Amino acid sequence: MEIHFYIIGSLFIVLAFSHLIFPRYFNWKQELASLSLVNRQIMVVHSFFIALMVLLIGLLCVTSAHELITTPLGKRISLGLGIFWGARLVIQFVGYSSKLWKGRLFETGVHMVFAVFWAYSSVVFIKTWLS
């Protein structure tokens, strides 16, 4: 089971650092220009903290896989992470309009890769809690 934590952790670390390209890739300078200053800053600040949490979850998985799997506290943390990423999986399909990805090869691929990743993560975390 530890290998799954190393895989998930490594992928979360990569995902966290991929947030660095979001402003440019999604053209935030132009796209967010019409927002009020507070809304623009909320978007940027929240994105930073999401990336930071994803990084910390990744580091936790990579550095503490054994403890997450074998200790009562680790199992409770795993349950929380399983619920969180399971909810993220649901949001992948109900929180984003299919207009953003349906019929678009690259966007559909990204959408499905993340759906599989959220499912994989939530199953590993919940299975850890159950064991």
Score class of each variant (00 low, 15 high):
residue 74 G to I: 06
residue 3 I to F: 11
residue 81 L to S: 00
residue 121 S to G: 12
residue 109 G to Y: 03
residue 93 F to I: 10
residue 87 A to V: 10
residue 12 F to Y: 14
residue 24 R to V: 11
residue 117 F to V: 05
residue 63 T to G: 11
residue 41 Q to E: 15
residue 31 E to L: 05
residue 92 Q to W: 09
residue 26 F to C: 02
residue 23 P to H: 13
residue 49 F to S: 04
residue 8 I to H: 01
residue 49 F to Q: 03
residue 15 L to S: 12
residue 25 Y to Q: 13
residue 93 F to H: 06
residue 27 N to W: 00
residue 92 Q to P: 03
residue 42 I to M: 13
residue 76 R to C: 05
residue 111 H to K: 15
residue 122 S to L: 05
residue 4 H to I: 03
residue 5 F to I: 12
residue 104 R to W: 03
residue 69 I to L: 12
residue 125 F to L: 05
residue 109 G to L: 14
residue 115 A to F: 10
residue 44 V to I: 15
residue 46 H to Y: 14
residue 107 E to A: 15
residue 96 Y to V: 11
residue 40 R to E: 13
residue 115 A to Q: 03
residue 50 I to K: 14
residue 17 F to N: 07
residue 45 V to H: 11
residue 128 T to W: 03
residue 21 I to W: 07
residue 16 A to T: 00
residue 49 F to I: 09
residue 114 F to R: 07
residue 41 Q to D: 12
residue 18 S to Q: 06
residue 29 K to W: 03
residue 111 H to G: 04
residue 116 V to E: 06
residue 94 V to D: 03
residue 67 E to K: 15
residue 87 A to T: 07
residue 129 W to E: 04
residue 2 E to M: 11
residue 35 L to I: 02
residue 50 I to L: 13
residue 29 K to V: 06
residue 31 E to C: 02
residue 10 S to I: 09
residue 32 L to F: 14
residue 36 S to Q: 08
residue 56 L to W: 04
residue 7 I to R: 00
residue 13 I to E: 02
residue 105 L to E: 11
residue 53 M to C: 11
residue 31 E to N: 12
residue 90 V to A: 13
residue 42 I to P: 00
residue 102 K to D: 02
residue 113 V to I: 15
residue 51 A to R: 09
residue 33 A to Y: 06
residue 4 H to T: 06
residue 100 L to W: 09
residue 38 V to I: 08
residue 43 M to F: 14
residue 112 M to Y: 07
residue 119 A to C: 11
residue 40 R to T: 07
residue 103 G to H: 02
residue 79 L to G: 09
residue 111 H to Y: 08
residue 91 I to Q: 10
residue 87 A to Y: 13
residue 72 P to S: 11
residue 1 M to T: 10
residue 35 L to F: 10
residue 103 G to E: 01
residue 125 F to A: 01
residue 111 H to W: 14
residue 70 T to I: 02
residue 20 L to Y: 06
residue 85 W to E: 02
residue 95 G to D: 04
residue 1 M to N: 04
residue 94 V to Q: 07
residue 115 A to R: 04
residue 122 S to G: 05
residue 25 Y to H: 13
residue 85 W to Y: 15
residue 87 A to E: 03
residue 115 A to G: 13
residue 31 E to P: 01
residue 79 L to I: 07
residue 40 R to C: 05
residue 7 I to P: 00
residue 95 G to I: 07
residue 104 R to H: 14
residue 16 A to P: 00
residue 119 A to K: 01
residue 28 W to P: 00
residue 57 I to F: 14
residue 64 S to R: 13
residue 100 L to Q: 08
residue 64 S to N: 15
residue 41 Q to K: 13
residue 2 E to A: 06
residue 102 K to A: 14
residue 29 K to R: 12
residue 98 S to V: 07
residue 123 V to A: 10
residue 63 T to E: 11
residue 26 F to N: 08
residue 124 V to A: 11
residue 6 Y to V: 02
residue 56 L to Q: 04
residue 5 F to W: 06
